[in-house]
């Protein structure tokens, strides 16, 4: 069988000459066929970049807008709502799962505490999510490469591979990760049939809507934000996002840690 032979070659090659040779071997195996070999490719509409990033214009956001954004994200990705009514207040806090959520300035920017902060900023709601870091500590920590950084900069989870050790949660300086402490399915109000749910025992977080980018759509939060969130390629100097970054002063969360967050905030 063609595929099992390829599989065998891969495994044998890895075992014999070490991991470095494996890509070469599978490349040879893949190109060895004649003409009509089954193959895979990206969709024609897929959006690509070198480092996806976001600029969040916090001046354009209010509670209602943020609620809509959070709902759009959580609905799209079947994020369970483990609410206090269902499991009690204490359990709800512990078992909570969130990809994107609202918080205060002093929670989002813990290393920038102005003693005398503008009242308006203190009141203003802030949106926080995974920063898709340039140097992600979670990826470094993961013992199975279940969390990894894609060539387009997205830090993404392979839920199939996650063993639930939660090293990534300890490593993340932004508290962006949630762990399925229980089966999430009973807590999903409306299931989005186009996206899988998760199983208990795996970590999850924002995936920058990789599944939407693949079919040419912007991330759900960007779409729901009505212009308050701009997304684009941070490495492309001609991109819209770079234009916005040139025009506005922005800050990033805990930039001093050297993780290189790809989410910028206009204050």
């Amino acid at each position: 069988m063609e595929d099992s032979r390829r599989q065998f070659l891969k495994v044998a090659g890895t075992a014999a000459v070490g991991l470095s040779a494996a890509p070469a071997i599978s490349a040879v195996a893949a190109s060895g066929g004649h003409g009509a070999q089954p193959h895979v490719r990206k969709g024609a509409d897929a959006l690509t970049a070198k480092q996806w990033g976001l600029v969040i214009d916090t001046t354009k956001l209010d509670h209602e807008k943020i609620e809509r954004i959070v709902e759009a994200c959580h609905k799209t990705h079947n994020v369970p709502d483990i609410s206090a009514e269902k499991v009690g207040e204490k359990t709800a806090v512990r078992h909570e799962i969130k990809w994107i959520w609202e918080t205060h300035f002093h929670n989002a920017f813990t290393d920038q505490p102005s003693k005398y902060i503008s009242e308006e900023v203190e009141e203003r709601p802030f949106l926080v999510l995974c920063n898709h870091c340039e140097e992600p500590p979670c990826v470094q920590a993961c013992p199975t490469e279940a969390t990894f950084k894609r060539p387009d900069g997205i830090v993404i989870m392979d839920f199939h591979r996650c063993i639930g050790c939660r090293f990534c949660m300890a490593a993340c300086p932004y508290g962006s990760r949630s762990f399925n402490l229980r089966d999430p399915r009973p807590f999903i109000k409306e299931t989005n049939l186009a996206f899988p749910t998760r199983t208990k025992g795996v970590v999850e977080k924002c995936n920058f809507c990789a599944e939407r980018l693949a079919v040419g759509k912007p991330p759900a939060c960007v779409e729901a934000s009505e212009g308050a969130i701009i997304f684009g390629d941070l490495e492309d100097p001609h991109s819209e996002i770079r234009e916005v970054l040139r025009e506005h002063h922005t800050i990033r969360r805990k930039a001093s840690l050297g993780t290189g967050p790809a989410v910028y905030y206009i204050i």
């Binding site: 909570e96 639930g164 990760r177 949630s178 762990f179 402490l181 208990k200």
Partner: peptide, 13 residues
């Protein structure tokens, strides 16, 4: 059930 029967949480993982 999952690790939800422990005292672990999103914050103290």
């Amino acid at each position: 059930f999952g690790l939800g029967i422990t005292g672990l949480s999103r914050d103290v993982s």
